[in-house]
Each structure stands twice: as C-alpha cells, then as structure tokens.
Amino acid sequence: MLTLDYDRLDVRAGMDLLDLGCGEGRHTFEAYRRGAHVVSLDLSHRDLATTRTWTGAMDLAGETPAGTRTAPVVGDLRTLPFPDASFDRVIASEVLEHIEDDASAVFELARVLKPGGLAAITVPRWLPERICWALSDEYHANEGGHVRIYKASDLAALCRDAGLEHTSTSHAHALHSVYWWLKCAVGVNRDAAVVRAYHRLLVWDIVKKPALTRVLESALNPLIGKSVVLYLRKAA
C-alpha cells in the first residue's frame, strides 16, 4: 500500500533514493522495483530484517533491474549517517509525527538531498487525526506513538525553513480513516467484530483493487484522506 505517487516524485532507474523510517519497507519495494539504488533507514533491526528479506525475494523473482542495489541502515532521522547531498530522492512516510524534534529531522533530510533533488514527506492529515485523538487516548498516548497533529501549512513552513520548496500536495487512504475511527471508537486494543469486518474489506480492496472502491477513495481523499503528502524540491 503506497501513500505517495512515484511518478510525481519522478523515481527512475539509477537514482540514489533514501527511505527514512522505512519500517518493513513498503515504500522501499516500489523504488527498488523501478531500479533506484535504495538505502532503507530505520531504528528497528527487526523491521530492517524484514525489508532485507523481501528485497532479496524480489531479486530472486527477477522483479528488479540488474545492478540495482539496496542497503538497510540502522539510524536516527535527527542525525543521519550520510554526507551532504548524497541522494537524488528522499522519502519520509508516516514518521515525523513520532519525532519530538521534527525540525532537526527535516533539516537532516534536506541536508542529504542533492541540489535539485526531490523529496516526499507524508504525515497523518489534521482532520482524520484530530478525530482519532478525540475518540481515543490509546491511539496516540503510548511509547512510540504520535506526538503531534500536523496542519499541512505548518509542515510546509518547517520544510521551507530547511531549504525545501513545497511544490504540490496530495492526499491518500480515505477508506483507512474510517477504519481508524471505528477502531478508536470501540477501543484500539479491543477485538471488535465491526473492526475485523472492515479490516477484511480493506485487505480485499488492497489485493483486488476493484474499480468501485478505487473511484470512491479517489473522490473521498481530498475530504478525509488519512495521509497528506507534501512534494518538495531542494534548490539547485
């Protein structure tokens, strides 16, 4: 399940791409499939091991261009272990909302991006997130949970202060907003039948991609999309 548009980010073969806070690699995989040389960075050794397993499986299945490289790296977004101007593209998806010092993380992202390079940052959108916080403290008040709710304009200003130009915005995963509202309403850790049923619907939608739900989500994304995506450029 991808949150950002790789065509809008213009990810091409041979580029050096950094996936910050990659988790188990869902955004790494598409970049790698397109032939980018991907560095996947995360604090979790376990998640990076999963990422390594799946990229290896992609290689064995012949899903990646010959010569394409990938490397998992344990690291902190606030102090990236890379020289200035190392990457053509940088992705930071659903990670800044977990970091107290998000300004340092955005500055580091801008530092390692090459002049003229492009970046995409995604965070939970203000309205769906505000509803989740209102319904449940368990949703965010836990170790490693969300520490803030972003307005897109505030995040764009933070990026501008780091030297990144905000070029466009999109929204994604409206159907997932409903899932989280249900989950927060009945209890985040409660195994409720209505939540299980809606989760089965989401899995079916992700796997089958039926036209009806794709059209529905596309129409709802501008209104209740769970994530907001900022596309950015570093001055040449």
Rank of each mutant, 00 (worst) to 15 (best):
H98L: 12
H98P: 13
I99S: 09
I99Y: 09
E100N: 15
D102A: 13
D102I: 07
A103W: 04
A103D: 11
S104W: 02
S104M: 01
S104Q: 08
A105P: 01
A105I: 03
A105W: 07
A105D: 02
V106F: 05
E108R: 12
E108N: 14
A110K: 04
V112S: 12
V112Q: 09
L113M: 11
L113A: 13
L113H: 12
L113E: 08
K114W: 00
L118Q: 07
L118A: 03
A119N: 09
A120E: 02
A120L: 09
I121T: 12
V123E: 00
V123I: 15
P124M: 03
P124K: 08
L127N: 04
E129Y: 00
E129A: 00
R130H: 13
I131F: 08
C132I: 14
A134I: 07
L135P: 05
L135A: 12
S136P: 08
E138C: 02
E138P: 02
H140W: 15
A141G: 04
E143P: 05
G144K: 11
G145N: 06
H146V: 15
V147S: 13
R148T: 05
I149Y: 02
A152R: 11
A152G: 09
A152V: 10
L155M: 11
L155P: 06
L155K: 11
L155V: 06
L155N: 06
L155Y: 15
A156Q: 07
A156P: 04
A157C: 05
A157H: 14
L164N: 02
E165S: 06
E165P: 02
H166I: 00
H166P: 05
T169F: 04
H171N: 10
A172N: 08
A172R: 12
A172I: 00
H173N: 11
A174I: 10
H176N: 14
S177W: 06
V178Y: 15
Y179T: 02
Y179M: 01
W180S: 03
W181E: 04
L182K: 05
K183C: 10
K183P: 03
A185S: 14
V186D: 03
V186T: 10
V188A: 06
V188K: 11
N189W: 05
